[in-house]
Amino acid sequence: MRQDLSHIQRWIEPGSRVLDLGCANGEFLQILRDQRQVRGTGIEIDQGNINQAISRGLNIIEQDMDQGLGNFPDQSFDTVVLAHALQAVHYPDRVLEEMLRIGRQCIVTFPNFGHWKCRLYLGARGRMPVSKFMPYTWYNTPNIHFCTVRDFEALCRERGIRILARDVVGNTERKPLLANVWPNMFATTAIYHITR
């Protein structure tokens, strides 16, 4: 499982209701269901992913979150998850507001564009960073709203969003010491547990 997903599991109460926005093939929801008896719903737009998620026995809704999430009632889920999708939506701030309306608490993970490698790449070459982790070029990337750890926290302050916890994934599998101390420079992926 992707590292950010294994990190956020502990914030999800056993037996709770989880909405996973952009749930891909449903692997994460399946783990939550099988290991934590979570009652999950996923939304996804990719047809191949949807069929895989149906095969896993999950409740999947084909829906484009850029078209809104108004069909989900206020506070109807315990946790709403947005994993590695914040940077790919048209209006990240609106999606965040909707998540906080639908869920009692929310979990957001995103690639940190403030990572030193991104800075070095952009600073030294003067071109948009391309890496193994983010292999797209600027004109064909689905990631249209990159942000940094500091950017995200500034938005939370501005909108009155409470950060319950922050976690990071660093460059290595080991405990990301540097990333914990200086996340904006050393976290590859930022992980936030937020509420209103």
């Binding site: 719903t41 047809q47 949807i50 069929n51 149906i54 999950l58 409740n59 999947i60 809704i61 084909e62 829906q63 069909n71 989900f72 009632p73 109807s76």
Partner: peptide, 12 residues
């Protein structure tokens, strides 16, 4: 169905 909290899978 979502508002009624019924399990639902939907594909278009």
């Amino acid at each position: 169905l979502i508002a009624a909290e019924r399990p639902v899978t939907y594909t278009e």
